[in-house]
């Protein structure tokens, strides 16, 4: 305990142990996940993201939406996420395998968005919400995503269109081998 290299080696051992035990073994289990059909012969899920949605994720990240919105629904025994109607089933690891950056988030000042695309009714509704917010909500209006034309109507910028495409692409309304939707 008096030698610098011994202490460093010991601390390295503690770090390497947790790295191996948590991350390498996690990699063995999660690193090979593929898309899977909900039932034999069916289409593969999660579905490939539309290109516009991939751009929209960059807007989502760049505006810092992850500070207030999570993208994970916990199982029924842990928290009231499903009871709140955010999704019909808990999110599972397979749902995320196509995402370049996983934004499961850790803080909720607003609703969970993992299944938002299945909840929102139309693009127009979403655009109006983004542009004006609603009274009493902590979420501000994102008016800078829209430009006003001469006749007073609002046109979404490219960012807004991409963001809406991304939000609409967020869906876990399919069964996965790990979590079936209840019929």
């Amino acid at each position: 305990m008096k030698n610098l290299n011994l202490i460093l080696a010991g601390v390295f051992f503690t770090l390497a142990a947790s790295f191996g035990g948590l991350l390498l073994s996690g990699q063995v289990q999660l690193g090979q996940l593929n898309r899977a059909p909900a039932e034999e012969g069916g289409p593969l899920f999660p579905a490939k993201e539309p290109g516009l949605a991939i751009q929209g994720r960059q807007v989502y990240i760049s505006l810092g939406c992850v500070a207030c919105h999570t993208q994970q629904v916990r199982p029924a025994g842990q928290g009231n996420d499903i009871a709140r109607g955010w999704a019909a089933r808990p999110s599972v690891a397979r749902d995320y395998i196509l995402q370049s950056q996983v934004l499961i988030g850790s803080h909720r000042l607003g609703p969970d968005l993992v299944n938002y695309g299945a909840r929102v009714k139309s693009d127009d509704e979403l655009h109006t919400y983004l542009r004006t917010s609603v009274a009493g909500s902590v979420m501000p209006a994102y008016g800078f995503l829209y430009t006003q034309s001469k006749d007073g109507s609002f046109r979404p910028t490219e960012d807004a269109v991409a963001l809406v495409a991304y939000l609409k692409s967020l869906k876990i309304d399919y069964s996965s081998p790990e979590a079936k939707l209840k019929q």
Binding site: L4, I7, L8, V11, F12, L15, F19, L22, L23, G26, Q27, L30, G31, L33, A93, R94, D95, Y96, I97, Q99, S100, Q101, V102, I104
Partner: peptide
């Protein structure tokens, strides 16, 4: 000594596994 040693190691490893050679899906969260 321990604290000083930990910082560069975890930062480089996390950068590697999250931004340079990203891991798949929720491994990133882990």
């Amino acid at each position: 000594i321990g604290a000083t040693f930990v910082f560069p190691v975890i930062t480089v490893v996390a950068q590697l596994m999250l931004l340079w050679c990203p891991t798949l899906g929720v491994m990133q969260a882990l």
